[in-house]
Each structure stands twice: as structure tokens, then as C-alpha cells.
């Protein structure tokens, strides 16, 4: 049997679409069972008809609708609603779609703040005519996760989601099986050595290489990066970034986790949970240079707001 698939990218960077392509030769297998009816990154189906003279935005009907990116402007919202209308199942693909992602860091600012900076940089030729407003969709009040605006059936977080998970989800959908994705934290999947509480009292910035033996020493011989004093978001971040049977990606590059799979539970708060984890281990949270960045992947759902930073400090 084949499944009709429609795919859309909203306020996104294309990384999720590239992760789909990174399924590699498995993509060719997927194409045998998936009939892709709409996918602007690779196919020429248009919103307003192929002659560009339609009056209403249209997307073909599909069994499965995949949406990457957050919802930032009126066009994103219109496309998301049309996708919901036309697709039986909606998958939120990637952390922008599930939690707002990096662009939701903009939620600490008003749209005016963003435009005042972007249209007044040192290279901007400001002729005083105001900001663009013709033939472009107006920005919404904030950068929203997809489920703030439409119902989502399946969440595939990750920045980007690992191709193994995308493949697994698509295969399960075609076969009518339940989709099983990792639900543990990054720490639960990380083999580094942990000694226990109480050895460090403050967080250092990641400005030098962590300690480990020789270059080819396996990860299970390195001491936990958090215990080495570096901020690592592993305890409060959903695991699975390494795909099937692979170690956490960043940590295996000897670089601490920053939380790209979003909170362990869908509605968790990575900032609050991390500050709690640090404090309960006797670490002075005042040693962090700032804490807005702890929500850098999950600032949607009203987690970050204009003025939030000021109130905190």
C-alpha cells in the first residue's frame, strides 16, 4: 500500500528536510511506499495553482502531513491550518515545530525590537521609508510551536531529528504500527563516568577542551562533562539524538549538550529543571553567565517573553 504525504516548512532552516534526505538509500525505499503530493523543497506544487491565478491557498489532501518549523507569520498560520484541514495525521518534525526551536529566542523581544535592530544595522541604508509591508505576510506576536495553533498528532523533536527516527516513524505509519521513540534523557543514554554529587560548586564556560585521555579513548572512559564543571543540558533533555544505538552526538564530539531534543517530557521547562538540578547538587547558579540560553530550544509555548530577562536580573 502507499501513503500520501504532504510536507511543509514554516519558520525553518531546512535542516529537518536535509535530515529526511540524510536517510540516504533508505529514502529510495520510502519513495516506493510514500506518494509525496506536496513538498516545496523538492517539488513544484503551488499554493495558488500552477498558473499562479488562484485566489485561495491550496494544498492537496494527504494521509500524513509533516510540518517543520515554528509559526511566525500569517502565511505560516494559514499554511498550518490548511495542512490540518487536508491531512489525517499531522507530524511536528523538529524542535522548532515541537517547542519553538532556536528562532523562539526572539520571544524575549517584541517584533519592534527585532525590526529596529535588523533595519538599523551598521550596513543598513536607512532612508526613513519605514519597514517592509508590501506583498509579505505580517509577523505574529511571537514564534509559536505548531501545537499552539493547530492540533498535532505525532511529535518528532530534534534539531534536527535523527534520520533513523524519521525513517522509523514513516515506516510505522505506512505499516499502521505505533511509533516508538526514545523517552529517556540524554544522561540516561550517555556512557561517561559519573562519580556522584558535591565535587563542583560552580559552572565554567566552555572555553577549553575537557579532560580526557588520548584522542581515541572511548566515551565511557571520560568523566561526565557536568562533573568536570561544564554546563551540560543532558539531565533535562530528551535523548535519542545519536539515532539507533549511537551515543549522544555532541558529547561524543567532546562538547557538552545544549538541549536540542527539547525537554524530556513534552511540557517540561528545560531552564527551570536545569537550574533545579544544578542547585540541588550544590552548584551556584549565579556562576552561569545568563540563563535565557537554557531555553534556547524551547522558548515557544510562552516560556520566553519580552521583558522576561529584565525581570529575572
Amino acid at each position: 500500500m502507499t501513503v500520501k504525504v504532504a510536507s511543509e516548512w514554516l519558520n525553518s532552516c531546512s535542516g529537518c528536510e536535509i535530515s529526511i534526505i540524510d536517510m540516504g538509500e533508505r529514502l529510495l525505499d520510502v519513495l516506493k511506499v510514500a506518494d509525496i503530493v506536496h513538498l516545496p523543497a523538492l517539488m513544484d506544487n503551488k499554493y495558488f495553482g500552477q498558473l499562479g491565478d488562484g485566489t485561495h491557498l491550496d494544498i492537496p489532501k494527504a494521509d500524513v502531513g509533516i510540518i517543520s518549523g515554528s509559526i511566525r507569520n500569517e502565511e505560516h498560520l494559514e499554511v498550518a491550518k490548511k495542512m490540518r484541514e487536508q491531512c489525517n495525521i499531522i507530524i511536528a518534525l523538529g524542535t522548532c515545530a515541537t517547542h519553538g526551536g532556536i528562532p523562539a529566542l526572539s520571544n524575549s523581544y517584541t517584533n519592534e525590537d527585532l525590526m529596529d535592530r535588523y533595519y538599523h544595522t551598521e550596513t543598513t541604508d536607512d532612508d526613513g521609508k519605514g519597514y517592509p509591508d508590501k506583498e509579505i505576510p505580517a509577523l505574529l506576536d511571537a514564534c509559536h510551536a505548531v501545537d499552539e495553533k493547530i492540533k498535532v498528532d505525532i511529535y518528532l523533536p530534534g534539531c534536527p531529528p535523527h534520520p533513523d527516527h524519521i525513517f522509523k516513524a514513516l515506516v510505522a505509519l505506512v505499516q499502521g504500527d505505533e511509533i516508538k521513540l526514545p523517552e529517556k534523557s540524554v544522561c540516561d543514554t550517555c556512557p561517561t563516568i559519573r562519580g556522584g554529587k558535591g565535587k563542583i560548586t560552580k559552572i565554567k564556560r566552555f572555553l577549553e577542551a575537557p579532560e580526557y585521555g588520548s584522542a581515541d579513548e572511548p566515551l565511557d572512559k571520560m568523566q561526565c562533562l557536568l562533573e568536570q564543571g561544564y554546563l551540560c543540558m543532558g539531565p533535562v533533555t530528551r535523548g535519542g539524538c545519536g539515532g539507533d544505538g549511537v551515543l549522544p552526538r555532541c558529547i561524543s564530539a567532546r562538547v557538552p549538550c545544549r538541549g536540542c531534543y527539547g525537554p524530556v517530557r513534552h511540557n517540561g521547562n528545560q531552564r527551570l529543571d536545569m537550574l533545579n538540578a544544578l542547585a540541588s547538587n550544590g552548584i551556584n547558579i549565579g556562576s552561569l553567565p545568563e540563563s535565557v540560553s537554557l531555553l534556547r530550544f524551547s522558548g515557544g509555548h510562552g516560556m520566553l517573553r519580552p521583558g522576561f530577562k529584565k525581570k529575572e536580573s
Binding site: R72, H76, S106, L114, Y118, P137
Partner: peptide, 8 residues
Amino acid sequence: SLRGFEKF
């Protein structure tokens, strides 16, 4: 669209 990296 505009994401506002220069600001945030």
C-alpha cells in the same frame, strides 16, 4: 519572513 538573529 524575518527571524531576528541580529537581535536575539
